[in-house]
Amino acid sequence: MTQRRPTWVYDAGQEPDPRFSLANERTFLAWIRTALAVLAGAVALHSLGVPESDWLRTTVVVVLVLFAGGMTALAYRRWARVERAMRTRTPLPSFGLGLAMTGAIVLVSVLLAVALAVSS
């Protein structure tokens, strides 16, 4: 048994090649950087008062903040599932995080397009 957490990941299978685990960690950190950038964008929109419509700005900011939080949680889940798959020598999980991110970006793009059209 290992002292590393989460135990449901590290207690399974055998230790994979460290290069693969480190690559998995770098991918996780890339998702976290993206989530932080989305949060920064939400703060910027709110601080600058863009778009002018209060309800639309609030909607876009809330969607971005929720998106960043969800992306962080899903990135951690994906890291753990990939690490466990490598340890147990099973196929890697599907890439649902990409679909979730695409959907959220489309939603925010539509909201911002509407905001820009209304304010013009």
Rank of each mutant, 00 (worst) to 15 (best):
G49A: 11
R87G: 09
A37C: 12
R89G: 11
A117K: 00
E83Y: 13
G98S: 14
T2C: 12
R81D: 08
M101D: 07
T7S: 11
M71N: 01
T34F: 15
W79C: 05
F95R: 14
S47E: 10
A85I: 14
L48E: 02
L22Y: 02
F20I: 04
P6F: 07
V38P: 04
L36N: 05
L48I: 13
M101A: 15
A85H: 13
W31I: 01
A113Y: 12
G98Y: 09
G69F: 10
S47P: 04
L107V: 12
L29H: 11
N24K: 09
L39Y: 05
F28I: 11
A115Q: 01
L56A: 10
I32F: 08
T34Y: 12
P91H: 07
A23M: 09
R4N: 02
T90I: 14
G69W: 01
T88S: 11
L36P: 00
S120Y: 02
R81K: 14
M86Y: 13
S119C: 00
G96M: 12
R89A: 15
G96F: 15
A37M: 09
G49W: 13
G41D: 01
R57D: 01
F67Y: 14
V62T: 14
E83W: 06
E15M: 07
L45P: 11
D54E: 07
V50H: 04
T27P: 00
D54S: 10
A23R: 02
Q3R: 12
M1H: 07
G49D: 12
G13Q: 03
W79E: 13
G49M: 09
V61T: 11
V62W: 10
L92E: 08
H46I: 08
R78W: 02
E25R: 08
G49R: 10
T58Y: 02
V118Y: 06
V43W: 05
L92R: 13
S94E: 08
M1R: 14
L116W: 00
L66R: 02
V114N: 01
L48G: 09
G49Q: 09
V82L: 09
R77K: 10
V9L: 02
D11A: 08
V9Q: 00
P6G: 04
F20Q: 06
A100R: 11
G70I: 05
E15Q: 13
R78I: 03
I32H: 11
G13P: 13
I32M: 15
S119H: 00
E25D: 08
V63D: 07
P93M: 13
A113V: 13
R4F: 10
R81H: 13
Q14Y: 01
L107A: 14
A75C: 06
F28E: 15
R81W: 08
L36F: 09
V65E: 04
T34L: 15
A42E: 03
G98H: 13
